[in-house]
Structures are given as C-alpha cells and as structure tokens.
Design a protein around this nucleic acid. Structure first.
Lengths: 161, 161
DNA sequence: GGCAATTGTTTCAGGCCTCAAGGAAAGTCT
DNA sequence: AGACTTTCCTTGAGGCCTGAAACAATTGCC
C-alpha cells in the first residue's frame, strides 16, 4: 500500500492501546460477573473468597495474612475481613505464631478443603465453557502476549515494589 | 517430535484456558489498581466514576440511568449512588423527563466536561505508558483475539440477554 | 374506565475495596 | 536498658458492587 495508507494506519494505531485496555477490562468484567453469579448460586461463595481459598489450598501449612494479601493482590485491611468471614463458617482457621506473635497464619480446615475442591472443579469447567469457541492456538498465543502486557505494566508502576 | 510429546502437549493444553483466565484477571487487576491510584491522587476520582463520565461525554443530551447501567456494566442500584455523588460535586446533573416521569436522565455539566477532558488525556497517556514495551503488532493481535474471547464468553452466559 | 403486568429507579443488607491511622510485637542502636 | 524504627495486622471512613425487594409511572387488556 502507499504512504497515505501507512500514515493513516499510524494515526489509527495511536489509540490501539486504549482500545485494547477497554476491551480487556470489558472482557474480564463480563467473565467475572458470570463466574461470581455462578459461585454465588451454586456454592454461596464470592470470587475473592475463592481466590483466597485457592492460595491456601496449595499450601498445606497455611500462609501468613501478609503473604495472602500479596498473592491475591488484595489489601491487608481487606484480607482481615475476608479471613474473618471464612473462619466464621468453618472453611479456614487462623492462629498466631508462637515464635513471632505479630503474625497470624490462615489454614484450610478439612471441610474447607473438600468445599474448595468442588468449587475448583466447577470453576475450571465454566472457564473452558466460556472459551469454548476460541481456537486453542489463539489461546496459547494470548497466554504469552497477555504475559507481555503484564510485564510491561509491572515495570511502569508509580512506586516500585 | 514424536507422539509422546504431542500427547503430553495435549494434556498440558487442557488447562490453558484456566491459565489464560488467571493471567487476564491478574493483568487487569494490576493495571486497574494503578489507574485507580493515579486517578485518585491526581483527580480525586474513582475508576467507576471515570467510566461513567466517559459514557456521558459522548452523549451531549445525556443518558437515562438504565442506559448508563448497561453501558458501564454496573448494576442499577449502583448507578444511583454513583450519580448521586457526581451530582453532589457538580460534575453532572440529573433530571426527570416530562413525557415519562419514571425516567431520569444524567448529563455532564460544563464543569464536568472540562474536568473529564483532563482526566481522559492523562488516562490515555498512562495506558500507553504501561503498554510501552509491547510491540504494536502484538497489541493489534491482542485486540482481535481478546475480542474472540469476549464474544465466546458472551454466548455462554447462564441467562441470555 | 379499572386492574394487571411491565418498566425505570431507589433502597437495603451484606460483602468487597482502598487508603490512612492505630496498636502491638520484634529488631536495632546507643 | 530505653527509645527509635520496622513489621504485621486490625480498625475505620468512604466508596463500589450485587441481588432482592419496594415504589412509582406507564402500558395493555378486558
């Protein structure tokens, strides 16, 4: 094609990032609303709870609240409340360390363990169902490219961490 | 490579959708936390407010709350509160229609208009900055492929709409 | 016209979320 | 030891979010 088209492409391309961002946002919002709805209906759970339980599931010895907070990208203050509610209905428990009485460790109970397994199985099924019409090649392409976006974003945060 | 590898690839591929989902979620969470932080610091605004204002910006005659709700993917009840707060600090105003007194229309004020323009300019800059290290080709590939994911998800919701 | 169903918004309870400020335990410095 | 600083968690105010129930105005049906 000619220079004119290249030029207009370049201009058109200027807002590509913004469009991508809006589309990413809309897509994850759509999907998480659906997941939320189903978690609620079928398990009486919320997405943040599911997320938190998933972290505890793979750590038999439990995690300190601070670790939980950074792994789930949820603020400390918020973890406190989440953990309180989950402890109240017996899916996890919480105890202070003897060595260092500042830290609290949360751990899945047996009940919590099997409860989570049921949810995880359903959750994975739902995701596959929602992405059913997307070509597997496209999926793995997205996996690496979304990874690039994440890494780029990570390097451009206000304060480093 | 041989059959074994193909087979193991196929097995490996089984959780690709789940991985992609988690990565999408983590990426948008990371980016929106950053955007939120900056909107707050530099404009005293929140992301949902920005989103809502963006919709009103392109509709000079305003929008009914129901329209706002579906365009921003925010529930009706939530729109009520958002609109109340935005009206309180004078960026939008709200009025009932004469023809149909059930409907309320929200519209940007002049103040709101220029306030939003400032934010929008910064917002776009931030997005480009965060995606700076991603190849433009990759960006446009993502744009279409994330679109596929969205469409697929849209066709697999519990209740149709 | 009068009653029922529908549409558009608000209200409410419960949970999520952030930032900022508080308190308690452990480490550090002199 | 006593005072400073840091680490880990909790609290509190303000806002976002959902689903369900309440209300009000409009439309449809007889």
């Amino acid at each position: 094609m000619d220079l004119e088209l290249v030029a207009s492409d370049a201009q058109e391309g200027k807002k590509q990032e913004l469009k991508l961002w809006l589309r990413l946002l809309a897509t994850t919002k759509l999907m998480s609303q659906e997941i939320r709805r189903r978690l609620r209906r079928e398990f009486g759970a919320t997405l943040p709870q599911f997320d938190l339980l998933a972290q505890l599931y793979r750590e038999k010895d439990g995690l300190r609240l601070g670790e939980l907070s950074s792994r789930t990208m949820v603020t400390n203050g918020n973890v406190t409340g989440l953990v309180e509610r989950l402890e109240a209905d017996g899916t996890i428990l919480r105890e202070r360390l003897e060595d260092d009485k500042r830290v609290t460790v949360a751990r899945l109970t047996e009940k919590g363990r099997s409860y989570f397994e049921g949810m995880a199985e359903a959750h994975e099924r739902w995701i596959k169902e929602m992405m059913a019409e997307v070509d597997p090649t496209v999926i793995s392409g997205l996996l690496t490219h979304v990874g690039h976006v994440k890494e780029s974003a990570q390097r451009h945060l206000s304060d480093e961490d």
